[in-house]
């Protein structure tokens, strides 16, 4: 049977388009979490209840009225370690203005002592909470660390940042979260 080359060409193009589409969907599903995180911007930050290192139950809503810097991190994450002293300084500097930094550890469940020791050695002056998968999922399934959410005094996500940024950029985002809250309060 003789096949028309043009038909073959069209079939080949359709197949390759399907391949590209499949590849794109696979990439999209890998980055699904990041995409849904993007959707949180401007929306209320999902509330959660997590245990702190001293065994207390902490809710995000406990910090309502403050601008919250919510930082997902882990002891095995070197870039996260770089940010921590900056967060300590920012908490001291902007705490009186209404900033509350909150760390959520993504370390495995049985590593509370390791997290506690690490935080102590880093001189952390803000609450560290032990992460749970449900909370990570609610924030879009944090695929890489550090991931930081900036939440205004009304509990809305102002911005989210993936990976390590410079101290200046973090400080700018903190100022923005504090200012955003003031702008909304004036409305």
């Amino acid at each position: 049977m003789k096949r028309d080359p043009v038909v073959l060409m069209v079939v080949a193009m359709v197949v390759s388009l399907m391949l590209v589409f499949g590849f794109h969907m696979a990439r999209k599903s890998d980055g699904q979490a990041a995409a849904s995180v993007g959707d949180l911007k401007g929306k209320p930050a999902p509330d959660f209840t997590l245990q702190s290192l001293d065994g207390k139950s902490v809710h995000l809503s406990d910090f309502r009225g403050k601008a919250v810097l919510l930082n997902f991190w882990a002891t095995w994450c070197e870039p996260c370690k770089i940010e921590m002293p900056w967060f300590v300084e920012l908490q001291k500097q902007y705490g009186p203005e209404g900033l509350q930094i909150v760390g959520i550890s993504a370390d495995e469940g049985d590593s509370k002592d390791g997290v506690s020791e690490f935080a102590h050695n880093m001189g952390v002056n803000y609450p560290i909470l032990l992460g749970k998968e449900a909370v990570v999922d609610a924030y879009g399934g944090v695929q890489f660390l550090p991931t930081t959410f900036y939440i205004d005094r009304n509990g809305k996500v102002v911005d989210r940042v993936f990976g390590l940024k410079g101290k200046g950029e973090i400080e700018d985002d903190v100022k923005k979260a504090l200012a955003e809250s003031q702008v909304q309060a004036q409305k």
């Binding site: 882990a74 095995w76 994450c77 870039p79 695929q143 890489f144 660390l145 550090p146 990976g163 390590l164």
Partner: peptide
């Protein structure tokens, strides 16, 4: 456990 120049992965 992998990292790049700015972030780490589980």
């Amino acid at each position: 456990q992998a990292c790049d120049n700015a972030a780490c992965y589980p």
